[in-house]
Design a protein around this nucleic acid. Sequence first.
RNA 1: GCUCCUGUGGUGUAGUCCGGCUAAGCAUACUGCCCUCUCAAGGCAGUGAUCUCGGGUUCAAAUCCCGACGGGAGCACCA
Length: 502
Amino acid sequence: MDEIKEKFPEILSPKEKAEEREGLPPLSSAETGKVITRFPPEPNGYPHIGHAKAAIINSEYAKMYGGKCILRLDDTNPESERMEYHAAIKVGLDWLGVKFDIVKNTSDDMELIYQKGTELINIGKAYVCTCKREDISKNRKERISCRCSLNDIEKNNLGWKKMFEKFKPGEAIVRFRGDMKSDNAVMRDPVLFRIIDEKHYTLNDKYRIWPSYDFAVAIEDSSDGITHAFRSKEFELRKELIEAILESLNMRKPQQGFFSRLEFKGMPISKRILRPLIEEGKVSWYDDPRLPTLEALRRRGIRPEAIKKFILSLGMTKADTLAPFDALEAFNRKIVDVDSIRLFMVLKPKKLFVNNLPFSKVEIANHPTKDMGKREINIDENFYISGDDAEVIRVNSTIRLLGVGNVLITKIGANIEGEFVEGDSSDVAKIQWISEKDAHEIKILVPKQLFIEDEFNEDSLEELEALTEPQYLQLKEGKEIQFVRFGYCRKDSQAQAIFTHK
RNA sequence: GCUCCUGUGGUGUAGUCCGGCUAAGCAUACUGCCCUCUCAAGGCAGUGAUCUCGGGUUCAAAUCCCGACGGGAGCACCA
């Protein structure tokens, strides 16, 4: 060691220590004020946590560099897109609090996209292919070109024109001249345009030739001025294609970055899995609190800020993230704690008579540390306490009814009896209670993990019958509550609350 | 099968590009204490990883190279 010190003193002096950073890692080639990012969802389903990740990362980078973020509805496949989804995505993003500087649709630029397609044909970088689907797929596997790729520009132009009218869907497509020998299968002369006669949800039958994802993204990202495009990892192979297309057209290329998909353990995102559950009635709808959709998360009581913090805490890793739901809960709990009213709620109610109660009403603070006011509760000798608490009570022991006082238990039978006694609260079990005369009955939905080891969990939604205070009725729907000694719940309706987390 | 990505404490990640500062930071979970008329939040402390495994390069490797194994994705006229 000393020898090293003498001979190579420079290697012992530390290099710049990377500063502890907050949020996302810095971009390598970003200029403040000039960063433009984008989030391009396809309106083909309800938005979920995966959409949230893409939207938040892209908008956050724009924010970090004082740039802009574009929301671009990627509506180039009329077969699977619907206004309903388009609207749901907007609502979801709005709730998330992600702001966009520009909102547009890919289909706004169809003329541009056609123009670029024509250009590609005219420079010999694209051709019309009339092969059968199976043959194309087979050729791709075997890495061989088809006869169509030999056609000259004139013939391709003719075919291109025919696609607008004469050809039927499936009879002709436009293909990019990539490299049939490439190891990256995406490069093996991929589809640029295909014919779809289905009615588009806003444009109706205005167009019938629609660009493929890769082509639309390439053209749009470039022409929208996107400097940095972040997508999830499954698109990583498309990077090469998009760059090849833009190079052929001599168009500016954005930086492309990738991040891992995000899913919660036992909470699948895929429509392929969710749809049957809904059809079979195993989950009620896309807002069922067991689901990772934005709507479900909202209903369950998860706050947008929690989702944002959680997602930023994952960073830009490309390692697959199968996060346990409690990772999100921890963020949410801190946010929700400060403005959740504390209410009493009792499960498996057991009657408790309290003799010689010296007063007929109590005042209880709505929050232990924050000033959220107080509420007054009328009481008499008839109380309910939780069955679980009742079980551990013994004759001659003392319990404390929170906010009321100590009760010495005198008798335990079908009901429990006790008498009010003076005394301090230290060293006594403190339990919540409900006044019998105006107990309000509610149902509490407790969402659990939907799938366990790939099997649908039949017990994933527990329904609890509960008694709570009349104050519950005064709360606005959607309010977060902490039921004391139980956990956080969100008021879903006058008769139902949904368990958020402990 | 082929191709690409990926593998750090119970969990989620930072660090990996540009090897030494770190036998590894943060968060969460867990444990204990403090606070408290909640088993919440808050404060403090603690347990816990030789960085998937095996080789190699080097004075020095989580960091570079090779190989194995595990996980994910792509191989659509879906995005």
